[in-house]
């Protein structure tokens, strides 16, 4: 069964909502469980949608956007699993595999967005410097709008316009180019850290930076907790040392002051 134009438009509209939700991680309607169910409902096969939802959700359970990484796109996987199962008559389980190229292409689009949107930060800084917070808000929300737009176009083309074309496109993208984008994504945080260090780093803090770096290199753990504990311990030590120094200085000053006072009295005699 083919997808009608109306169904294509409806799915595109839903993709916008789910896309914004995924971008913000708001209500989790971007998870395949919900995406498949709604897509199934929109093309008039609710039961297929629910069953595909259960299967795809489990298949994507481990693919999570933790720590700013981007997994294969769960929205396109959900939509295309149901659409492919509906149009080709494949079982939902097979359709999951066939939906993967769409899901991976959308993943690349989002990764590209992460990189491109770095360009807006300069403008955002300018608005803040001038105190134009309304304009700042608009430039912060702009990426969300652009992402929504990308979802609407991509999902409509995948569902209604050009399923075959999309598949060829995914397969024909030169690997060095897609690989280059992946690499750039891995290196770009360095720009953010460079900016952070520009405002925070003083020569006396370099040793701590190196300690944190070394600790993270050799302690294999899922998150930065060990490094944070080391940092907290160092901060604690420094706090104690500085406080002691301050107290000693205060005592010295008091002594100096009392000596001066004594001196003054002697002069008076």
């Amino acid at each position: 069964m083919a997808i009608t134009l109306t169904q294509g438009i409806l799915i595109a509209i839903f993709a916008i909502i789910a896309g914004i939700d995924f971008w913000l991680e708001g209500f989790y309607i971007f998870r395949p469980m919900i995406v498949c169910t709604v897509t199934g409902f929109l093309i008039g096969d609710l039961k297929l949608g629910i069953i595909a939802g259960g299967l795809t959700e489990l298949a994507f359970a481990g693919l999570t956007p933790v720590g700013g990484t981007q997994p294969p796109n769960p929205i396109m996987a959900g939509i295309m699993t149901v659409v492919i199962a509906h149009t080709t008559g494949h079982s939902p389980a097979t359709a999951i595999g066939l939906s993967l190229p769409f899901s991976i292409l959308m993943q690349y689009i989002i990764l590209l967005c992460y990189s491109i949107f770095s360009v807006f930060t300069k403008k955002a800084d300018e608005y803040v410097a001038k105190g134009e917070f309304r304009k700042f808000g608009m430039i912060v929300l702009l990426p969300t709008v652009l992402v929504a737009l990308a979802y609407s176009v991509f999902s409509f083309l995948s569902v209604y316009g050009a399923q075959g074309l999309m598949k060829t496109l995914v397969n024909s993208m030169p690997t060095w180019l897609s690989h280059g984008f992946t690499i750039a994504g891995g290196i770009l945080p360095a720009v953010g850290f460079g900016l952070l260090l520009k405002s925070m780093l003083k020569a006396k803090y370099v040793p701590y930076l190196l300690l944190g770096f070394t600790a993270a290199c050799f302690i294999k753990f899922g998150n930065l907790m060990p490094v944070a504990i080391i940092g907290a311990s160092l901060a604690w030590i420094e706090y104690g040392r500085e406080k002691k120094e301050q107290d000693v200085n205060k005592k010295f000053k008091n002594m100096e002051k009392s000596l001066e006072d004594v001196g003054g009295e002697e002069d008076g005699i």
């Binding site: 701590y208 300690l211 944070a228 420094e238």
Partner: peptide, 26 residues
């Protein structure tokens, strides 16, 4: 002791940034 706390917070901050560089930049 706000000045001392600020110093201690910078120590903690810079340590964690060192860790972030090691884990995020690939």
């Amino acid at each position: 002791n706000s000045a001392i706390v600020a110093h201690a917070a910078s120590v903690l901050g810079c340590t964690v940034i060192g860790g972030l560089i090691a884990t995020y930049v690939q």
